[in-house]
Design a protein around this nucleic acid. Structure first.
Lengths: 228, 228
DNA sequence: CTCATAAGATGACTATTAGTCAGTATATGA
DNA sequence: TCATATACTGACTAATAGTCATCTTATGAG
């Protein structure tokens, strides 16, 4: 018996219920959970989160409604998990845009981050809508604090890239800002505000300009304002 | 008989149902409508628009539920009328801040407008929440296009003050912006984004700064960016 | 193979609430 | 006084989130 085999057995032995069956059961349980989440993604994104019903989600996942509630506490919890997916996707795109190992200037990095967010807005409108729709007290009260913490952590991590870019700008003496964290909040609030405002066709018509031009306008003013 | 008296009588005569009673009836109808709207204001603002029920509103207005629906098509229509109240209040404050007859500079005017919006955010949090909460497709689909038009008109009028301030800045050669309408959209999107972002206690904690400082940060950067 | 047990799944049921409408009450003026 | 019109009522329907007693299936001991 090799050491690794011994350790594996030891691991199994720790839990009296351990058996080849258990591993399969756990896998199947995760698969079912994923199937329900996938159904939720389709149903909520297709019909909008208010029109869509848990019965619909159950039907799409080919399980009874009760089963949905075995895997997720509530409709809001389901939505929260979709939100986490969206935040993860955005986080990855921001990390890629920051491009840690490339010798970009701080300004280039901020432009790339802003551009990545605009791409996300345009390519993943469902996730973006979800992020905005769930950014409300009503929703937050309906999910566990643990889940809420996870969402907040993901959000902070996303903003972290902006903080780092601004830090770089301060270090390189390109930017003049009092506090990089505040400045990151300002920058993000502004470009996010542009996207929220332009999410409505009527608003776009009203302002007679495209999402891109308003978004770029906000970004350029913010950059100009931060530069030395 | 003066001309005005003649015209008044002529107006009444146009409608064969005219009578002293009719005027009273109409007044009473408006009073009831106001009572229901007042009840809605209390109930929705007290409990939050999702938790509050139309039964609650009816109970507070001391009418049957059916009566509420005689005066307002739906829960959303009730909310839309509260929203109009809020937009009117904000519009008045912006007009006052603009101070047409005072010799303020464009920059002073923009600062005053932004300051008025911050005041509104802080003094009328219920109306502000309503404005943000109802800024969604789901809500817009549920009200008449006429009502929706009214809301949009109020919004445009509000932004109009910002456009005028920026126009002044361009005329006075203080600002360098390509298009004042776009620039107004940019400015408003940015400061509004700051308020939305900071509406959440968790977000404020995350960014470790006050609403005021982030808001001011956004405004100063936007002003700096617009200045020649 | 058989059967007791546990784990997992089910869907009928409850509770809540927006919106309806047949019936009732009140006011008007002929 | 009474027919009519107007205003109001609240029991009812429909939709839907969430529950839980019951059933089904898989497991492994004998």
């Amino acid at each position: 018996m090799t050491i690794s085999q011994y350790m594996t057995n030891s691991h199994k032995a720790r839990n009296p219920k351990a058996s080849p069956t258990k591993a399969r059961r756990e896998r199947e349980s995760l698969e079912r959970r994923d199937a329900i989440l996938a159904a939720a993604r389709n149903v909520f994104f297709e019909n909008g989160i208010h029109r869509a019903t848990v019965d619909d989600v159950a039907a799409h996942a080919e399980v009874a409604k009760g089963t949905v509630y075995l895997y997720f506490e509530s409709k809001e919890t389901l939505l929260a998990h979709l939100l986490l997916e969206g935040l993860d996707a955005l986080g990855e795109q921001l990390a890629e845009a920051f491009a840690e190992n490339h010798p970009f200037t701080a300004e280039q990095r901020l432009r790339r981050l802003a551009s990545a967010y605009l791409d996300f807005f345009e390519n993943e409108p469902d996730y973006f809508r979800l992020m905005m729709a769930l950014d409300r007290g009503q929703f937050q009260e309906a999910i566990s604090t643990e889940l809420h913490q996870q969402i907040m952590t993901r959000s902070i991590n996303g903003l972290g890239w902006v903080v780092r870019a601004i830090d770089q700008g301060v270090t390189d003496s390109d930017f003049a800002v009092a506090d990089s964290k505040s400045a990151a909040g300002v920058f993000w609030a502004a470009i996010n505000g542009a996207l929220v405002l332009m999410s409505h066709p009527i608003r776009r018509e009203m302002l007679q300009q495209s999402v891109e031009s308003l978004y770029t306008g906000v970004m350029e003013l913010m950059l100009k304002g931060m530069k030395k």
